[in-house]
Design a protein around this nucleic acid. Structure first.
Length: 823
RNA sequence: GCGGGCGUGGCGGAAUUGGCAGACGCGCCGGACUUAGGAUCCGGUGGUUAUACCGUGGGGGUUCAAGUCCCUUCGCCCGCACCA
């Protein structure tokens, strides 16, 4: 006998929707719980990664609801983005049509999984009622000086024909289309996330509910480094160059200086010198190098002498200034001191150009000679050749030399971050337009809030050629200046989609607000997100941007919280045959196929049972079958027993041995499942329910129908259905109905276990000699340590094995074991 | 190079606080039922030269006791990386 999943699942999905089972009542007295899964990009179809993500979230939301929380569990669409536009170019469909039909399809697929969303709160970032407020937030950032425009060398993807954020460049390639990224000088909008670098770093400590991995990735990305800026006078000039170094202790070992070829001062320095021509050739050569080669560790260090010398402020030495391909303009000051003895890069460079190598830090107790060196010595040691600082521990010297430099006014302590400002302009159509106009008279003018949204025009052409299609749309571009009423043009760029997704969790709190992105009252009630769930691929990008937005909005006074996500769960990937499901490998298992074959409950159960959520999960067809069989096994048991149930209280005192065993299994399982929910250990929760079902079958096997204990069966079956309900809500609801319950299972109270039911009178004790198991004995559960000892020493086996040996000590561990130590 | 993680049967995994390694499931083997079984129910299943011994990547240590703690080493995965 098998249950009809198709019929049952459709039936309950319809009921939940008609009854508004998952609609939220904000006036509820219950404590709130905000369960959130990362919203999907509407690419067309759900994949298994989505099923996993949303199954985990759904189980959490349903469990919390049954525990008595007022649960916010929303869903929406990260619906702006490049694929929509590519579809327009390739197939001539409008990006909006493509997007909304994908949304419709994926919404249907999500509903088919029976997820407990409040669909009345659905948001879509590409809808004017949403992007109106993305633009509003842009204006707030602009007002507070956190949005600014500047000319800069930016990452440009020639294939996507747009600039990319640093975070979207992976190994020198476009994160999306994998094309090689080139540098291009453009005027672009930036968000000043660097203003928040220190706070974003410090507050990582507050994120106790986040995985260490994500925290360390963010902290590496922010990349704080402490050091000093020190000025070196240019020989024969009043000007000086400022270097950034984390190793001021090596300053007496400086034998040359290097500067980034793009550095603005280079032009002036080399003008008119005999070296000018060679330098220009070198600059050209470096600029032609692509980003990957330029920044690869194994690229040979090359340079060109500028003809300029600088003076070491500590020892007055004159050292040559080189242009070099391994120095970057956008980190530190773009000028670096060359210390070949104590930095591997400088060592390689010095070897190539025959520059002196002077040791200034000696490994303790050694007398290393520079002629003998084969690599730089970068470790700690004792200072030498460093004038007044000789003999100091080099760590101490860092402090002393920096103090000295600060006293003399030739430098200062500084902190550098690897984090760059967030470039948000995209030369693309399908995004939120940047709410800025350029007036012939007034210059850069923000669009007044009352004029929002700046609507994305529909009548544009997609050729795939040239720049943004918005640029060609005259009705969009030409406008009037909100200040003087004169002619003005709109900014034709749109915002990075990560801007849209940086605040959607706030919108869910108040999704229908037409005046503001959200009211403070609503976010005060719902925020923070209690549990956020999504892929680890967002560990840096999305999660850092969202933290930044929350902090900025907090500072502007719009939200009270300054971190958005209390707890974070990063789920693993879904693999097939050891590799990520992908069309090119041909190992994709489609959710629709699985749901069609086994139903949504089986898909959910398998995906939660096969691996812990944070680990990668290898798809296994026969194990899916196994999950399906398990549901059927439960179904058959309930069908068999539903006429032998009673609601009467179990009379615990009069249970026979088999009944006690069953009741023990039921209550241990309630305990275990509840504990496992708290640590997201769904796989072990399910295995514990399986044990309970096995115990039920054993009871059936050993008991005549006529002797069934009806109250016990009643308790067992109702508990089983409740425990299973977060995982397999449809079939659980159906069974609930078939055992005659009329209440709504999804709001049934979660179970508490009976302490007495899991108390055992006798326990099995392991008896060890020197830690090796020799025997197992049954003993009263409340036996004292002394009793344990006595019983163990009187044990026949132990007596025999310890005969003629000296018993050194006996270690009793109540309820567990007893270890006899012999010599 | 820096940072994070992982390594347990044929496979997915369990062991939460140092206390019986391998729960639960897949697969496989056997039994029952059956015209039949790829259904269902029941049982078995780490290895071996098997009353015992060996087993959580390898080596060492701490401990009465180690998958778990410490040191060391190997392998794999992820993130960052000529960042001064």
């Amino acid at each position: 006998m098998r249950y009809n999943f198709e019929e049952i699942e459709t039936k309950w999905q319809k009921k939940w929707s008609e009854n508004g089972t998952f609609s939220i009542d904000e006036s509820s007295e219950k404590p709130k719980y905000y369960a959130l899964e990362m919203f999907p990009y509407p690419s067309g179809n759900l994949h298994m990664g989505h099923v996993r993500n949303y199954s985990i979230g759904d189980v959490v939301a349903r469990y919390k609801k049954m525990q008595g929380y007022n649960v916010l569990h929303p869903m929406g669409w990260d619906s702006f983005g490049l694929p929509a536009e590519n579809a327009a170019i390739q197939h001539g469909v409008k990006p909006s049509d493509w997007t909304w039909s994908n949304v419709d399809n994926m919404r249907r697929q999500l509903k088919r999984l029976g997820l407990s969303y409040d669909w009345d709160r659905e948001v879509a970032t590409a809808k004017p009622d949403y992007y109106k407020f993305t633009q509003w937030i842009f204006l707030q950032l602009y007002k507070h000086g956190l949005a600014y425009k500047k000319m800069s060398y930016v990452n440009w993807c020639p294939s996507c024909k747009t600039v990319l954020a640093n975070e979207q460049v992976v190994g020198g390639h476009c994160d999306r289309c994998k094309s090689e990224v080139v540098k291009k000088e453009l005027e672009q909008w930036f968000f000043k996330i660097t203003d928040y670098a220190q706070r974003l770093l410090d507050d990582i400590d507050k994120l106790s509910g986040w995985p260490d991995k994500v925290k360390s990735m963010q902290s590496n990305w922010i990349g704080r480094s402490e050091g000093a800026e020190i000025q070196f006078k240019i020989d024969g000039s009043d000007e000086s160059l400022t270097v950034y170094t984390t190793r001021p202790d090596t300053i007496f070992g400086v034998s040359y200086m290097v500067i980034a070829p793009e550095h603005p001062i280079v032009e002036k320095l080399i003008a008119g010198r005999p070296e000018e021509e060679k330098c220009r050739a070198f600059i050209n050569k470096v600029q032609k190098l692509n980003e990957i080669t330029r920044s690869a560790t194994d690229t040979e260090k090359e340079g060109e002498f500028t003809g300029v010398y600088v003076i070491n402020p500590l020892n007055g030495e004159k050292v040559p200034l080189y242009l070099a391909n391994y120095v970057f303009l956008d980190y530190g000051t773009g000028v670096v001191m060359g210390v070949p003895a104590h930095d591997q890069r400088d060592y390689d460079f010095a070897k190539k150009y025959n520059l002196p190598i002077r040791i200034v830090i000696q490994p303790e107790g050694q007398n290393m000679k520079s002629e003998d060196m084969t690599a730089a010595f970068a470790a700690e040691g004792i200072m030498e050749n460093s004038g007044q600082f000789d003999g100091l521990d080099n760590k101490e010297a860092i402090k002393k030399i920096t103090d000295y430099v600060e006293e003399k006014g030739i430098g200062k302590r500084t902190v550098n971050f690897r984090l760059r400002d967030w470039l948000i302009s995209r030369q693309r159509y399908w995004g939120a337009p940047i709410p800025i106009v350029y007036c012939d008279k007034c210059g850069v003018v923000p669009v007044p809030e009352s004029d929002l949204p700046v609507m994305l025009p529909e009548n544009v052409k997609f050729t795939g050629q040239g720049e943004s299609p918005l640029k060609e749309c005259k009705e969009f571009v030409n406008t009037t200046c909100p200040v003087c009423g004169g002619h003005a043009t709109r900014d034709v760029d749109t915002m990075d989609t990560f801007v849209c997704s940086s605040w959607y969790y706030l919108r869910y709190c108040d999704p229908h607000n037409t005046e503001l992105p959200f009211s403070k009252e609503k976010t005060d009630y719902w925020m923070n997100v209690d549990q956020y769930i999504g892929g680890v691929e967002h560990a840096i990008l999305h999660l850092l941007y969202a933290r930044f937005f929350t902090k900025a909005l907090h500072d502007f006074g719009y939200v009270s919280c300054d971190e958005p996500f209390e707890n974070l769960l990063t789920q693993g990937m879904v693999l097939k045959d050891g590799s990520k499901m992908s069309k090119s490998i041909g190992n994709v298992v489609s959710p629709e196929e699985i749901v069609g074959k086994y139903g949504a409950d089986t898909a959910r159960l398998f995906i939660l049972f096969a691996a812990p959520p944070e680990r990668d999960l290898d798809w296994n067809d026969s194990a899916v079958e196994g999950s399906y069989k398990f549901i059927n096994r439960v179904w058959r048991a309930v069908e068999d027993l539903k006429d032998y149930m009673s609601d009467d209280k179990v009379d615990a005192a009069s249970l026979n041995a088999d009944e006690k065993k069953l009741r023990f299994a039921v209550h241990s399982s309630i305990k275990k499942v509840t504990e496992d929910f708290e640590r997201f250990s769904f796989n072990t929760a399910i295995s514990s329910i399986m044990e309970m079902v096995n115990a039920l079958y054993l009871y059936k096997e050993n008991t005549d129908k006529a002797s069934y204990n009806k109250p016990l069966i009643g308790e067992t079956v109702t508990s089983l259905i409740i425990l299973l309900s977060p995982f397999v809500p449809h079939v659980a609801s159906e069974m609930w109905e078939r055992i005659g319950r009329t209440s709504d299972l999804t709001s049934e109270k979660w179970l508490a276990y009976d302490e007495q039911a899991i108390v055992v009178s006798e326990v099995e004790i392991v008896v060890q000699i020197n830690g090796k198991i020799k025997d197992k004995i049954m003993i009263a559960a409340d036996a004292s340590a002394e009793e344990l000892k006595t019983v163990a020493l009187e044990n026949e086996k132990i007596k025999k094995l310890t005969e003629g040996r000296q018993i050194v000590k006996v270690i009793p561990v109540p309820n567990k074991l007893i270890n006899v130590v012999v010599k």
